[in-house]
């Protein structure tokens, strides 16, 4: 009997908004699914598409990017750059056979601990429903 599927989600959060939202969720003792692992970067604009590809290639079932709301970027407009890359990358992932639900970009501000909780739980539920990521053969695993 195989073990129940537990999605592995890599989250890459910006230092100023979404990472702090995750801190706030903690200090507020909100409870959410334990399936995400957070990597901190200074700005969502730092997220190189290769980070996302690397995560999927290394066994992630989902990747969640978190940045400041439009207009709220600590570095003025890094989040817009992240958004542009996100749309392109999503298309590319789709073409590679990776379901779009597995890759998500969310704007979560430092005060939105609750929104973080809801986002994580929702994403975990969706990926649980999708099942483990099965990369097609022709995509070289890292």
């Amino acid at each position: 009997m195989p073990e129940a599927f537990e999605p592995r989600i890599v989250a890459i959060f910006c230092n100023w908004c979404t990472y702090l939202a995750a801190d706030l969720a903690g200090t507020s003792r909100l409870k959410y699914a334990p399936n995400i692992r957070v990597v901190r970067v200074m700005c969502s604009g730092r997220v190189d598409p290769q980070f996302v590809l690397d995560a999927f290639a290394s066994g992630a079932d989902g990747v969640l990017l978190g940045g400041c709301h439009p207009g709220d970027c600590h570095y003025q407009e890094g989040n817009y750059k992240a958004l542009r890359r996100y749309h392109l990358l999503r298309h590319m992932l789709e073409q590679m056979g990776i379901e779009p639900e597995r890759f998500r970009l969310e704007w979560i501000s430092a005060s939105e601990g609750e929104r973080l909780r809801v986002t994580v739980d929702d994403m975990v539920a969706r990926i649980r429903a999708l099942g483990p990521l099965r990369l097609p053969e022709e995509v070289p695993a890292s």
């Binding site: 990597v39 200074m42 604009g45 730092r46 997220v47 290769q50 890094g78 750059k81 890359r85």
Partner: peptide, 25 residues
């Protein structure tokens, strides 16, 4: 130190202290 240019450089020629590509990978 936002790192936006680092992620954008097509030849991977920009790096960021404390957030080097190899560190994040």
């Amino acid at each position: 130190g936002c790192g936006t240019c680092v992620a954008a450089c097509p030849s991977g020629s920009i790096a960021q202290n404390l957030f080097e590509d190899d560190e994040i990978f």
